[in-house]
Simulated assay, not measured.
Amino acid sequence: MATIRKLRGRWQAQVRRRGMKPRCKSFDGKVEAEKWARELEAQVDRFGAAPDTRILESTTLSELLERYKTEVSPTKRGSVQEIQRIDVLKRHDIAYRTMVGLSPQDISSFRDERLRTVAPSTTVRELAILSHVIEVAIRDWGMPLSRNVVKLVRRPVIKNERKRRLQGDEEQRLLDACAGGKIPFFKTLIIVAIETGMRRGEILGLQWCDISHNRRVITLKMTKSGSGREVPLSQRAFDALTEWKARAAVDQLYVFPMNAGSLEQVWRRLLIRASITGLRFHDLRHEGVSRLFERGLNVIEVSSISGHKELRMLKRYTHLSADDLVDRLG
């Protein structure tokens, strides 16, 4: 057991174990001394010896974040977004905490602070980065940490499920409004989104060589889930793509040459022309997946098209029309 005593106005923690040199450290408060002793004892139990924790006293979370940004983030598909989030994390007070003093309470305070200004989903992503940084530091960088403090903290609950689908003549109004815009392929883009249920990034990354006109299938080499998949095209989607290809430039590599930011701007202007409110571009994926179910496809068939790996996630995107289901029930 550790010995905690007050000595000359400070609290001293001393840990003695057979086969190791006694370790002691002084703190301003008794709680900090007890915490240090508990963690050191846990490390002795885990590693069989007391690790040299001096590196934890001189290493800040900010330094680990910077190393992670340099060595790990560039290897990921979403590296740009992750690096941006790391830069945000480094501006917060928690980044200046040394690793020896980083506690679950620090993480909880950071979580609560972020929830006052950003959405729960953003906070969850930031906590996930912090957790993985510490995991990498323990496993790959040899940091003598006894535990990942982020895993001890409750994550915010994300409640962003949407049930928004196209209503009445909204689909036709969207397509008609495309004629008033300056993007010649936007009508085709909307049709493909509705008919396939593909994600925005998958649609914008689509190249002409990914489309098999003989099979009427799109081959996605890499998706959000980390694997590729094939997406069958309805006759409507295939005809729209064929018509657009006849008008597109011969040397055009991408089917829809625009980035995500431009798409959002065009989408907002399109909604104004179509007099539609409360509709996001991602809702077209909801619409597309729901229509696949309404056409009679089963869960396995729909998941193979949409790319969902979990039924729980698939259910979030699926909002069936009760009127259509009545007809199917007989």
Rank of each mutant, 00 (worst) to 15 (best):
V136W: 05
S103A: 13
G78V: 01
T122L: 10
D251V: 00
L241P: 07
G78W: 01
L297E: 08
G228N: 04
E63N: 06
I211S: 11
A13H: 11
R280Q: 14
I272C: 10
F293T: 02
D106V: 01
R114A: 07
D140F: 04
M99P: 10
V44L: 06
V149H: 01
A237V: 04
A49R: 14
L189Q: 12
G181Y: 06
H132N: 12
F238R: 04
E301C: 08
D283M: 09
R312M: 12
K182E: 13
I300R: 15
M258P: 12
S290F: 15
T59C: 10
V149I: 08
Q235G: 14
R16V: 03
S303R: 14
D176F: 09
G296Y: 14
T277Q: 15
G288W: 06
L206C: 09
E113W: 05
D323C: 03
A179Y: 10
T3M: 08
E32H: 13
I218V: 08
D283K: 10
A177C: 03
T53C: 09
T122F: 11
L64A: 04
R268C: 02
K76W: 04
A13Y: 08
R91Q: 13
E301M: 05
A119T: 07
D52N: 12
L311F: 15
K6V: 02
R173H: 11
I134M: 09
V153I: 03
A240Y: 06
E135R: 05
L220N: 04
V124R: 15
G261D: 07
N160E: 11
M20E: 12
E171H: 12
L279Q: 08
D176G: 05
A322D: 13
S290K: 13
P120V: 01
V72Y: 04
L40S: 06
E34Q: 12
E63G: 13
K90M: 12
Q252L: 13
E310W: 06
D283C: 11
G48K: 02
R229V: 03
I194E: 06
R200W: 05
K221M: 04
P74S: 05
G278T: 02
R229P: 15
G9K: 09
F27C: 02
E32Q: 15
L314P: 11
C24P: 02
I86S: 06
L7M: 09
R173E: 09
L241T: 00
E264A: 03
S321T: 08
A240G: 06
E171C: 10
K25H: 10
V15A: 03
F256N: 06
S109M: 07
S275T: 03
I55G: 09
L189F: 15
E32N: 14
V217R: 07
R97G: 01
G228E: 03
L279P: 15
F110I: 00
K69T: 00
R147C: 03
T122I: 02
A249P: 15
S62T: 01
A260C: 01
V326A: 13
A274N: 11
D283P: 15
L65G: 02
G261S: 07
R280G: 08
G197Q: 14
I183V: 13
E113R: 11
